[in-house]
Design a protein around this nucleic acid. Sequence first.
DNA 1: CAGCATCCTTTGCGATACTG
DNA 2: CAGTATCGCAAAGGATGCTG
Lengths: 120, 120
Amino acid sequence: MTVSLAQIRETSGEVFLEGCPTRVVLDHIMSKWGVLVLLALTDGTLRWGELRREVEGISEKMLASTLRTLEADGLVARTSYPEVPPRVEYALTDLGRDLMDRMLPLVEWVAAHAGSIVER
Amino acid sequence: MTVSLAQIRETSGEVFLEGCPTRVVLDHIMSKWGVLVLLALTDGTLRWGELRREVEGISEKMLASTLRTLEADGLVARTSYPEVPPRVEYALTDLGRDLMDRMLPLVEWVAAHAGSIVER
DNA sequence: CAGCATCCTTTGCGATACTG
DNA sequence: CAGTATCGCAAAGGATGCTG
């Protein structure tokens, strides 16, 4: 056992309580589009249009709101260049990269097992 | 860097494509209630009622459907004892424990950082 | 106790059209 | 190009009541 649930309870014993900050952040980063956007940015900086194409199926509305949430959380940095036509780039912050270091093993595991899980 | 996105692309290069199995499983285990139920069961076996009380705020309907999904995915095992009154226990399967080994570090990180993230 | 069925409200989300 | 605004529907989810 490398990690214990007890440790989590110590750090934030409220995980199972409504309105707990952990639940809020969990909802952001583990949302359908949240993970995919974060995952896409793990590759490196991407522009709005690239992001939209990379995360297949995402609507402009959802991309916008997902990015705004992640930016507000300090996980994604938005840089806009004062050019014409406008160019805006999105990248993970240090915090975001820190997060993805923990999330990638999980996503890897899922990617490796998803096939056999779904085919039941 | 311990893991790379490239590895994920190799394992399941379709993560960013619609209908990809990885997306489906991701949606199950990273859903609002999915994580919390899995997390609760990391402690050990729980009965229906205990689960309902542990995961504060979950409705019977959502607990039922979440458990059915996770059971169908082979992550949670349901054991019903032929007694009166009925007793049903839920526990992680080996696959489920394997999954949680990867998810706990992530949840731990979130629990540790959620406070400072939300207060922005 | 451990659920399922039903109804009904709320939310998420897509589609479309428009702007700096 | 990189968004915002508005509409409308379908799905998520809550409340309640019923059952083996």
